[in-house]
Design a protein around this nucleic acid. Structure first.
Lengths: 229, 229
DNA sequence: TTAAGTATTATTGTATACAATTATACGTTA
DNA sequence: TAACGTATAATTGTATACAATAATACTTAA
């Protein structure tokens, strides 16, 4: 649910999506203090629904609470990012196994469409589009799998990872090419219904993209660290 | 954090732990309607902090929202339980690998104590005690691993599983004995620092206990189903 | 000038009041 | 009696007021 979901009727949901977007886009940077009154005024709602939205974001880990009870935008770290990818890798493995079991021909067609678009764009400079189709591929798997809890956790993890991606633009180099072509391979294995193999290839696929991300954030951290000394 | 955490200062936290306990213990049964006003009166607090607690429980999946916005205690199902154990298995695998890497001799001693207590009690009828030491074993691993996000998700999963355990008392038969002795084996492999093996043995360990739980809930479901027809 | 202590302000926590919505009860009509 | 519509009540959503707490600014003494 990273993409804006605009059938929000309630002030609470409005605040949730709005603040989340501000954080993921980096407009509220890591460790920025959050003052309820000010944010409420900005969003033109009262503190009550805003607080409820902030609590949810706190639970999701995008907002954190200082010892004194005050809120701030969550900080980022290489070790956290590494952990996020580890969990994601395990869950994507579970998901793809279930998706493989349940996939209809129609489902496989949809995945095929994504793969073809990725292959088509591969080599071009439309890296953001490639990224989008990659995400779409995974989202289709989520839906096929029908694993509610896993998908919920995964979407949350992906929100976090997206924030890292914005704050520290990951390398957009040829090193991503073999990663993108993994989708091709995964779909092939899904068709063969090889459950063990599809899980391990998926897990490796995720950990490969983790490497790029972690490298980028490590550079970033060494660049800006010592700020709080 | 299933065990009551009584340094709650705020009404919100009080409500959170209290309502969670009511749900896990089954005193608020699945699908029971939750009326904010009544619950607030019962807990002798106002609706505002109660609502914040309920939202957190909703996000954790112990409370769910009907299409009309009203809350109820979450329902249970075999398929959900199966998924809970799958995720738990993957995360316990990640955790035990990290714990194995980081464990000090002192840490291993603490684990050894649990294992010895389990072995000592094994064969006796003190099944609840055995269960407690089993939980303690895993909790120690969580702390050693120092993987904040994974542990947070795991504790949440365990709360859910505990609720199932209360609602549908799992079999307390000799079938659990080999599962309990897994702890012994896991500790041995940790000492050998065999990371691949420790992960797979842990995953199997969890999935074995899953079998017992799922069997129990399946019976339970077939017993009470058709209620909503 | 610095340190400690106190007053002031800022911010969060909680309760309550009211508005909006949904469910229920009741009566009317076919 | 069944179906519909309307009035009433129950419940949730939001705003606001006030209380509790933490941060800051200020004053005074050494």
């Amino acid at each position: 649910m990273t993409s804006p979901n605009y059938q929000q009727k309630s002030a609470k949901d409005y605040a949730y999506f709005e603040v989340k977007e501000l954080i993921i886009k980096g407009e509220l940077p890591p460790e920025e203090a959050i003052i309820e009154e000010k944010l409420a005024t900005l969003l033109e709602i009262s503190r009550t629904p805003l607080r409820e939205a902030l609590q949810r974001l706190e639970w999701e880990g995008l907002v954190s609470r200082r010892k004194n009870g005050r809120l701030e935008v969550a900080s980022i770290s290489t070790s956290e990012l590494r952990e996020l990818f580890k969990i994601r890798s395990a869950l994507e493995g579970i998901i793809v196994v279930h998706a493989t079991k349940k996939a209809t021909n129609e489902d496989l067609e949809k995945l095929e469409d994504c793969v073809q678009m990725i292959n088509l764009l591969s080599g071009s400079d439309r890296v953001d589009d490639i990224l989008q189709y990659g995400k779409a591929f995974h989202n289709i798997l989520y839906e096929i799998s029908d694993l509610e809890t896993s998908v919920r956790i995964l979407r949350q993890l992906n929100d976090h990872i997206d924030r890292y991606r914005r704050l520290v633009p990951f390398e957009k180099t040829k090193s991503q090419k073999p990663i993108q072509s993994d989708h091709d391979l995964i779909l092939k294995i899904m068709r063969e219904k090889d459950l063990d193999k599809v899980a391990s290839v998926m897990e490796e696929h995720i950990m490969k993209s983790a490497e790029i991300a972690i490298t980028a954030v490590t550079k970033y951290e060494s660049g800006i660290s010592k700020r709080n000394d």
